[in-house]
Amino acid sequence: MKSPRNLQRLGALALSLALGWWLWQGVTISPFQGITGPAARYIHGTARDTGAANVVAAILFDYRGFDTLGEASVIYTTVCGVALLFAKRRYRRSSHGLSFIVKRSMALLVPFILLYASSIIVMGHLSPGGGFQGGSVMATVTILFCVIYGSSFEAARVSPKVKETIESSGALLFVLIGLVGLVTGGAFLTNIAAGFPRGTMGQLFSGGTIPLLNIAVGMKVGAGLSTLFYSMVKILEDPTESSPPEV
């Protein structure tokens, strides 16, 4: 029994090394000669084209905003699918949460976490951060609620339907902003050229649609991730089913 296992491992090792060797062969390292191609345009044109200070955010939400729509849709698909997989009418009440002290301090912390998350979302075009990151932070509130108060409390505070609504309207908002560009005669997801104000670089209100799209993505990701976590935790806690897998 022992030797076939080892043989398997050896084979796996050999395959991995062979693939790694080929990948290493394929790497091209040419001496650096300055940034060329589209990247150069992004670096030098962001201020003029979009008014955003964060070049990465400008790429994500303006130049290549369509990618971001797709990426947000992947999350949306996953959330929808996990909810579909674990479709259940009613969940039973399970854990009762942690001690009173923890619950109280959590209650004190929640506003700050939310504030922090919002700032990440809203300032996405100025500093590192943005809708995805802020949304994820916002979703941690759900996770903390589940851990500290028990999942049923969390569901009572923010019902799944509300999350569903936030998530879908976020996604819808993204598409509608994109369509504005189309309606004004430009292309889908046109930003400044469609008449959105460029603002002054470095200010909160700048970058045209970028902050709006950040908020849309933030809604989508925040609500989506918390639904995701909630669905999975519910099924793990459900006593009618067998125990969760041991890792």
């Binding site: 398997q8 084979g11 796996a12 395959l15 080929w22």
Partner: peptide
Amino acid sequence: LRTYIALIVAALI
């Protein structure tokens, strides 16, 4: 599954 994936990697190589 593991055999299958090993086959794929072998094909790639």
